[in-house]
Amino acid sequence: MSKDWNLPWEGGCRCGRVRFRITASPLLTAACHCTGCQRMTGSAYSLSVAIPGDGFAVIQGEPVIGGMHGEDHHFFCPYCMSWMFTRLGFTDAFVNVRAPMLDDPSWFVPFIETYTSEKLPWASTPAVHSYPQFPAPEDIEALLREFAQTR
């Protein structure tokens, strides 16, 4: 089923010095409850939209790597330090964009929630699927298909 996402979307950091554009439909939406996300957001969880890698581009400014400096790269505005997006070290297939960084995140609802094993006891989301850590690799394709049917 083809969805009209009204693309392209744009977004940026809090101060506006770094901007990005999304030209491909989202693959999945998520809330992550891991303690790393809690600490980087200063909240109970992070909210993200998985975007195909070739459908995401920084169009203004130059984000810097922050957070943990491991295999995954968390990109921030060098001025206001807003956490904007993450590129996973094992793939260029998608970029996890922080949903609140979109100019209009009003449509966003997390489809899955991850790391519920680390969630704060009072934190809840309307996610359809919950995982103590991440979904099993063999479940990803079915999740992507199911998410594609939700819009």
Rank of each mutant, 00 (worst) to 15 (best):
M1W: 05
K3I: 05
D4S: 10
W5P: 05
N6A: 11
L7P: 12
P8E: 02
E10Y: 09
G11R: 06
R14D: 12
G16W: 09
G16Y: 05
G16M: 15
R19F: 13
F20H: 08
R21V: 04
R21Y: 09
I22A: 04
I22P: 11
P26W: 08
P26H: 11
P26Y: 10
L27S: 00
L27F: 00
T29P: 06
A30T: 11
H33G: 00
H33C: 11
G36A: 11
C37M: 07
T41L: 07
G42I: 01
S43N: 09
A44N: 09
A44D: 08
Y45C: 14
A50D: 10
I51N: 02
G53K: 07
G61T: 15
G61Y: 08
V64Q: 13
I65W: 09
M68I: 07
H69A: 12
E71G: 06
H74S: 12
H74F: 14
F75C: 14
P78H: 02
C80W: 02
S82A: 02
S82C: 03
S82G: 03
W83H: 14
M84H: 04
M84V: 01
M84E: 11
R87I: 12
L88A: 09
F94D: 00
V95E: 09
N96C: 14
V97C: 02
V97K: 02
R98W: 06
A99K: 02
D103G: 09
D103E: 12
D103P: 08
D104R: 02
D104C: 07
P105R: 03
S106Q: 11
F108T: 02
F108D: 12
P110E: 01
I112C: 01
I112W: 04
E113C: 05
Y115F: 15
T116R: 06
E118I: 04
L120Y: 08
P121F: 07
S124F: 03
T125D: 03
H129M: 08
P132H: 03
Q133R: 10
F134Y: 12
A136L: 11
P137E: 14
P137D: 15
E138N: 13
D139K: 14
I140W: 10
E141V: 08
A142L: 09
L144A: 00
F147W: 13
A148V: 00
A148K: 00
T150P: 01
